[in-house]
Computed example of a mutant assay.
Amino acid sequence: MFPQCKLDHILQGDSFSGHLGSFFGTVWDNFVYVLEHSFVSLTGVVLLLIMAITFVPSKVSRKKRAIIGIIHVSAHLAAALILMLLMELGLETCIRHKLLATSGYHSLYQWYRSVESEHFPDPSGLRARMEQWTFGLYPACIKYLMSAFDVPEVMAVTRSNICKNGIQALSRGGAVIYYASIFLYFWVFSTPVVSLVFGSYLYICINWFHLHFDEAFSSLRIANYKSFTRFHINRDGDLEVFTLAVDKVPREWMLDPDWDMEQKQPQQLSHRRKYPSKWSAAAGQQDPVNTVRVVDHFVIRQNEKPDFVSSNGSVSR
């Protein structure tokens, strides 16, 4: 599917709408190619679809989960195809304007050698001796390091070779280098796009389907609206559950002087003290001790009373 060697119909349109129509037509053709001919891409799409469907909360019906998952995956797939085609168009434009793929894989090294010979002459032949002493490692290391950092040139030259001679003419190592280079740039471009797609998915699910509240709320990283649960077993053996919540969490804290002044008994538990915490909010109206409230309280009754064995061996309930 990639590289896309035939993009003339997109670049030679008469109007902006013509360019746009040709572009999205090519995106659709690539989507059909993924479904009909590709194996690796189709496997990835199927796995992503399974993950997207299972990610939808189970309280939703299976039909609705499947529809939401398909729409979610379709958005990701459309974004991926559009980004890949934009990268191909960018490379094609640079190649046509002779900004890339002008002198092979090592154009940056050749430029470096020309600048070096012009501004840093070597009348004593030190560079030649260094090359001889290092068995050719001195220029080779610089050459291939520059090639590794000149990723766009590697992408453009390899793409030109593939479009000219076919993918079969590319060695396994060359294919690995080419697709690794593509992946690096695609990762940079796709990260904000994927975040936008997933954020839009959470936004729509919260507002229209009332789903994924935990995932969306945690991603917002809001410090306020904290809650915790406490359990208490009363004398009857019933379990009382209290959920306590604080709407506003203080941003600034200070040492509580009352905690220092309070006399502490050895082995005394902190929750039995009058001032259990060493810290208090800098603003008294935001202190959680004053703002905490019980938002939920329920009791789980004991089903059966436990058996108690008395000292004389009799059993009582």
Rank of each mutant, 00 (worst) to 15 (best):
G173I: 13
H9T: 04
W133A: 13
Y178R: 08
H119N: 07
E88Y: 05
S314W: 01
R251N: 07
K274F: 10
K6S: 15
S114W: 14
R272F: 09
L255A: 13
W111P: 00
Q265H: 14
P288I: 11
M87C: 11
E252Y: 02
A245Q: 15
P250N: 05
E92A: 15
L86C: 12
P306S: 11
F16H: 03
Y105L: 04
L35D: 02
D8S: 14
R129H: 08
L86W: 07
W259G: 05
L269T: 13
G313Y: 04
L220Q: 09
F231K: 02
M87P: 02
D258E: 15
P152F: 03
S316A: 06
C205Y: 00
K98W: 00
D256G: 07
L255C: 11
Q268W: 08
A281Y: 06
H37I: 00
F213T: 10
P139K: 13
V289N: 14
P250Y: 01
R317T: 05
V246K: 02
W208Y: 10
V157K: 08
I142V: 15
T102Q: 10
I67F: 14
L220F: 11
R127T: 10
T158R: 02
L108R: 12
P266S: 09
K59H: 14
D256K: 10
Y33T: 06
F149A: 14
G173D: 03
R235P: 00
S311M: 04
C205Q: 08
W253L: 08
L20N: 03
M1T: 08
Y203A: 15
E116W: 07
N224G: 04
G13V: 01
A148T: 09
F31Q: 12
V197Y: 03
S74T: 09
N161W: 00
V46I: 14
A52Q: 04
N207H: 05
V315P: 00
L126F: 08
V60S: 08
F183K: 10
H271Q: 09
V241G: 13
I70A: 15
G18R: 02
K59M: 01
I67H: 09
T229N: 08
